[in-house]
């Protein structure tokens, strides 16, 4: 009897696995919740706050998509993933969307079968060292012991950088950012390397943040963005255009403060199309007309999300830099809503 129950359960599990991968939009709607993969905790990007609610730059993308699709920015089930588990979680259908400062690379896009819907942060790999080591440049790191998060592109960049500069190092592979932080502070490694934004976020959490510095070298391009599975273009479009809506809103000056007023209709047809008072853009996506308005209402436009989570007013204190709007000399650029 017990055996047959077990077999039945296994068979059902097999069937359930078989049915994943159809229309993600329908699955999300019928579940009433968006399953969003995030980091296990990187302050500023995705981490639970004191009351246990997830917040951060990547979390805001999840909430905006949930608001656009389900009408509720809190209808998100956050699934913490490590560098190692994130891709399996997405391709197996355990999560609908991965927003986990993941670098857009050729092999991940093509070979692993994912669709990167855009870039929400232009990053690059940097190095953090103690100031009292007296190191001014990454080229002086010959012989150093380096902590790296395993399962990331940084591991490969690091090997390439040291090899091309003909200097040596000892890698210490670490699974999570929290553990890497502890190892670095305990002096088990001289250098911690990961994306510069992650280093800034980690350093901000140190008690003696001033005793540490980031080296000037940025050794790689790390365009970070949300991604979905290959093969469901409608779902990919929804996530892509939700991100674009956040970016376009900043460009057009639509903020969480003036969105209600602007939703009444403006002289700018692109704002009208974005907020659904003109045209049929929502219907084309398979959503209602007000999808973007709801997405923007959760935590504001791209600039507001940046400022609230990782901007210069926060402990992480990242400048906009490459992540300024294209009109401000940055790379953040959304195709038009037309």
């Amino acid at each position: 009897m017990k055996k047959s129950v077990l077999l039945g359960a296994l068979a059902v599990a097999g069937l359930a696995a078989g049915s994943a991968g159809a229309a993600t939009l329908d699955d999300v709607k019928s579940n009433g919740v968006l399953k969003c993969g995030v980091t296990t905790g990187l302050v500023g990007f995705a981490a639970p706050n004191a009351s246990g609610e997830w917040e951060g730059f990547d979390v805001a993308v999840c909430r905006a998509v949930a608001a656009a699709v389900l009408g509720d920015g809190n209808a998100v089930e956050f699934v913490p993933t490590t560098g190692k588990t994130r891709f399996t979680a997405l391709s197996s259908g355990e999560i609908d969307l991965l927003a986990r400062n993941t670098t857009w690379t050729f092999s991940r896009d093509v070979d692993l079968g994912f669709t990167f819907v855009g870039v929400n942060y232009y990053d690059g790999q940097g190095f953090m060292v103690r100031k009292d080591l007296g190191v001014a440049s990454a080229t002086e790191l010959d012989g150093a012991t380096v902590c790296i998060q395993t399962g990331t592109t940084t591991e490969l960049n690091l090997a390439d950088y040291f090899r091309s500069n003909n200097i040596s190092y000892e890698p210490v592979p670490i699974e999570t950012n929290a553990e890497a932080q502890q190892q670095y502070l305990a002096g088990a490694c001289d250098v911690y390397t990961t994306d510069a934004s992650g280093l800034a976020a980690t350093r901000a959490a140190f008690e003696d943040a001033d005793a540490h510095m980031l080296l000037p070298e940025i050794i790689s391009k790390e365009p970070l963005g949300p991604l979905v599975r290959h093969g469901d273009d409608q779902w990919g479009d929804i996530v892509r255009w939700t991100l674009n809506a956040l970016i376009t809103a900043e460009e057009l000056g639509v903020t969480s403060a003036n969105i209600e007023q602007m939703a009444g209709g403006t002289d700018n047809p692109e704002i009208n199309r974005l907020l659904g008072t003109e045209g049929e853009l929502g219907a084309m996506l398979g959503l209602d007309a007000e999808w973007a308005r709801r997405a923007l209402a959760v935590s504001g436009n791209y600039g507001e999300i940046f400022a609230a989570n990782i901007g210069e007013g926060t402990p992480i204190a990242l400048a906009r830099g490459l992540n300024a709007q294209w009109t401000q000399g940055g790379l953040i650029y959304s195709p038009p809503f037309r």
Partner: peptide
Amino acid sequence: GGITLNQTG
């Protein structure tokens, strides 16, 4: 089972 798995998927 770790780094190779990750880098190749």
